[in-house]
Simulated scan of single mutants.
Amino acid sequence: MTYTGKVTVGGTPHVRELADLIITKVAVGPMSNNAYVLRCRHTDEQLLVDAANDADTLLEVVGEAGLSTVVTTHRHGDHWQALAAVVAATGASTVAGADDAEEIGVPIDVVVTDGEEISVGRSRLQVIHLVGHTPGSIALLFDDPDGMPHLFTGDSLFPGGVGKTGSHDDFVTLLGDVEHKVFDQLPDETWFYPGHGDDSTLGAERPHLAQWRERGW
């Protein structure tokens, strides 16, 4: 199956095979959250981005290889409803942004800040702290040495715009972070994987930056 990034709750997960990582995307829960299982092709170590809901489905995707780490992209409850059950079943360690960790309803083992790295087997994911959707939201960048960069954005960036914020000041902060830390640093071919809905590329979204700023929040 050719990877498209289009998944539905109860539907078939989509799998993308890279030289070093295998990425499996699945939609779960009443808010159709995306969860991503990253597996190192060299060691079979696995990392889950957002144990959002439906632990049984997530554990089925994880399979017998087990799970070493669960990263929660931000504090909002729809992104960690299955975290306790997944951790209980797998013994995985929990990771979240430093400014959101205390608001997540499951103990966080490792707090991370901007520029730190998280390992999944032989691959490294760079933490990008994006303030605005929540104070401690993080994105994860896998800069594939054999291809384009891959960016897991949580609810900070979607096709069509940045994520929702609670105030105009938060919107300005989030858009500024996304512009300076993402669009100014990464090439157009960067593929990003959001917390809900379809994937996109930075190149497809870059022309809309000025429009997002003009629209406000």
Rank of each mutant, 00 (worst) to 15 (best):
A84G: 04
A19E: 14
W217L: 15
R41E: 06
V70Q: 09
H196C: 05
G161F: 09
E60F: 13
H133G: 03
A88P: 04
V9R: 09
P194D: 01
D78F: 00
Q211W: 15
E17S: 10
G160T: 01
D155P: 00
A51E: 11
G132S: 07
V7T: 10
E205W: 12
N34P: 06
R41N: 06
N53S: 15
P13E: 01
S137F: 07
T43N: 05
L67M: 02
T190V: 14
A52T: 01
V95K: 02
E45V: 13
L48W: 09
S68Y: 13
H196K: 06
M31A: 13
T173L: 06
A52C: 10
L151C: 05
V9M: 06
G197K: 01
G147S: 04
G10T: 05
T72Y: 07
S68Q: 15
G154Q: 01
V127C: 05
S93F: 08
V87A: 11
A55S: 07
Q46S: 11
A210R: 08
T134W: 00
G163K: 09
L21S: 11
G11P: 02
D188G: 03
I104F: 00
D56R: 14
T113K: 08
V86I: 11
D144K: 05
A89W: 06
V172S: 08
D143I: 05
A96C: 11
E179P: 03
P135Q: 06
H168C: 04
H14P: 11
N33T: 02
